[in-house]
């Protein structure tokens, strides 16, 4: 089964540790470069909105963080599925690595949304709004998964429970995405559309096309850092890690 070799190699903590070390600087640097370009472009070289003026510019942080909060959840749920089906140690580590990063990025999305909501809507937060509430549920799902990991005596039990909750929680993602279309909501519907023309002017969208991959890469870098911690913890008795640590020192 030569085709599955990459998958089995992915299951080796040692190989993964080396790969992360090799990739991390590149991912981190490209994330920072993209984010700097996108933020400066969005703040300084983009025209103001005809209604909102300059306050719309928070879109260049708000939308990427919200997008990555949803995508990150799927990544975590897939890790959960792999950990249940193949009992792969690395998949469980990925689940543990993604949860805190996802929670942080969701919080950032909620916070920037509140900051944006005050000047445009007139309120930081509106309870009962389907989009806002489902996003808050996503935040609690991330937190719950983090808590569940350590709520069991044995590590395996915690991993299993967290993976199941991660899978169950996936139903929330399409609900968040479609909430503004299904129910009447204060939140506006999506401006970037896949099937029809986007309702955001092109010159306002380009910086967004830079900051979205920028936040994706930042997320990846943060997960890689977390992953390295997870590997170090679970392989703390292994010979190769000891050698690595001695070499570093």
């Amino acid at each position: 089964m030569a085709n599955w070799q990459w998958f089995h190699r992915l299951g080796s903590p040692k190989w993964l540790h080396g790969t992360i070390n090799r990739w991390l600087p590149w991912v981190l640097v490209s994330a920072l470069v993209l984010l700097s370009i996108g933020v400066v472009w969005g703040l300084a070289f983009t025209p103001p909105d005809y209604k909102q003026g300059n306050s719309f510019r928070i879109i260049y942080i708000h939308v990427p963080t919200a997008v990555v909060a949803l995508a990150g959840y799927y990544a975590m749920a897939i890790a959960g599925a792999v950990s249940i089906i193949w009992r792969m140690k690395v998949a469980d580590m990925a689940l543990r690595a993604i949860a805190p990063v996802g929670a942080a990025i969701t919080l950032l999305g909620l916070f920037t949304g509140a900051v944006w909501g005050k000047p445009t809507w007139g309120a930081y937060w509106v309870w009962e709004d389907a989009r806002l509430t489902s996003m808050l549920v996503l935040f609690f799902l991330y937190l719950g998964i983090m808590a569940l990991h350590d709520a069991f005596q044995n590590r395996q039990g915690g991993s299993r429970a967290a993976a199941i909750i991660a899978l169950v929680g996936t139903v929330n993602i399409p609900i968040i995405y479609k909430s503004v279309d299904w129910w009447s909501s204060l939140h506006q519907s999506a401006s970037i559309k896949f099937t029809e023309e986007s309702t955001i002017a092109a010159e306002m969208m380009y910086p967004l096309m830079v900051t979205i991959p920028g936040v994706y890469l930042l997320f990846a870098a943060a997960v890689m850092l977390q992953m390295r911690v997870q590997i170090a913890h679970s392989e703390r008795h292994s010979r190769w890690l000891e050698k690595y640590a001695i070499n570093r020192a």
Binding site: K51, I59, I200
Partner: peptide
């Protein structure tokens, strides 16, 4: 309380 609902259109003035 009165809140303003804005739409999904963004464009330069």
């Amino acid at each position: 309380q009165v809140l303003a609902k804005h739409d999904e259109n963004y464009m330069p003035p």
